[in-house]
Design a protein around this nucleic acid. Structure first.
Lengths: 226, 226
DNA sequence: AGGATTTTTTGACTCGGTCAATTCTTAAGC
DNA sequence: GCTTAAGAATTGACCGAGTCAAAAAATCCT
């Protein structure tokens, strides 16, 4: 438990042989799993097979990844707290919608995989896998959202205790719902084979429209206009 | 005896012996499962135990309920299409927010279990079970929401093809997000032991505030006001 | 190097869920 | 009323995910 305190998080520098091997093993297992999954589908590959292909025992796989699903979703869970972080670090004079809007647009422009825009084959493979596997789709959209929503709501409340908890949760729900929806649309287009750069313009326009909708409200949406 | 129409059982009139027995078996299994779950927890009861207690075989349980989770969540899945139905049947001049707002308020006033307000012990037991069991909570909030959102978005689009799909999905996401949040708050208060009638006033006030927020938008929520 | 610590492996186990074949029950035809 | 065909329910065997305890192998520290 003594974490040799030298060196930052810089990939593998000065980490000790044990630590380095652990990372290598984890990475090997993960790569093997993704390769097998993309080749034959999530449900058609057993953990035992992955273990064999990665030349470890089944238990070792579960040692590194709590569940079979985490083999696919694990790497994404680091992005969960992003919205809350954006709120925490923003200029207090900037409204919540504007801050998250700006952050999302910046992520789009940088082709951050978390927005769904990415030309990396591995990213696309994982996205396809999630979309093809109901149980993964469920945990991806729901599991994340629940945690992210709670954190964002907590952050909103912490910043402005004048607001009541219900409003904070409602705001968090709306803001994250939009994000999720935009990301899903981008992902669908990437899966359809488009290039990220080609999708970007409409993705930006979509983001503007969607965030504006949240900012100004639904109004009389859904009613026939005279 | 052609069609033995005797039997004032209401539900099961004129259904044939076989059909009646099936329903009885399903009901017996369900009741047994809920009883065992509430007594000892979802994860601490095996399907084999439920089968034994209900005096059927394990296979028969899976015959009536596709998965163990469905033993708890199954009965709720009928309410999924409610929002889409409300939209379909509403006066075209009424905005979407207003229609769903009104419908939710009416459901609250009627102590519809789907709103979280209910004094029935069995309903509360199931709610507690879901809140206590992560995997159930996930499927309850997420699995439903995904399907309901898709249906509502489709209905919004069908009614007014002028609107673009993205806006429809965003609207559906916001409207259902609010519903879910309000319901969760009600459920938490019921689990805390309050009576539905006592919770109702604040639940109504919450609903008004939350739907108003969706109607008018977040605006500059989260920014420090001068 | 050598002992301590941690990781990996092994093998056995539980539980959810599926499958195929068999038995039992019910509905219907004679 | 008896037989027969259709469906349920059961049985038992099976698979995969995930857990556990203890043995075995690797790494770390002095």
């Amino acid at each position: 438990m003594t974490r040799s305190a030298q060196g930052g998080d810089g990939d593998e520098a000065g980490l000790g042989l044990r630590e380095r091997k652990k990372r290598q093993t984890a990475l090997r297992i993960w790569r093997t799993a993704i390769a097998l999954f993309t080749e034959r589908g999530f449900d058609e590959v057993s953990v035992a097979e992955i273990a064999a292909a990665a030349e470890v025992s089944k238990m070792t796989v579960f040692n590194y990844f709590a569940t079979k699903e985490d083999l696919v979703l694990g790497p994404m869970e680091q992005h969960i707290d992003e919205p809350a972080r954006v709120m925490r670090e923003k200029d207090p004079a900037v409204p919540a919608v504007a801050a998250l809007h700006a952050h999302y647009v910046a992520a789009l422009a940088a082709f951050d995989p978390a927005t769904g825009l990415s030309d990396q084959q591995q990213v696309i493979d994982v996205i396809r896998l999630i979309h093809r596997t109901p149980v993964l789709a469920l945990r991806a959209s729901a599991g994340f959202d629940a945690k992210a929503r709670a954190e964002l709501a907590a952050e909103l409340l912490a910043q402005d205790p004048e607001h009541d908890p219900l409003t904070a949760k409602a705001a968090a729900s709306q803001l994250l719902g939009i994000r999720l929806m935009l990301t899903e649309k981008n992902q669908r287009r990437m899966l359809a084979g488009e290039r990220a750069a080609d999708v970007l313009p409409e993705a930006l326009a979509d983001a503007h429209r969607a965030f504006a909708l949240v900012e100004r409200g639904l109004g009389d949406y859904g009613a026939t206009r005279p």
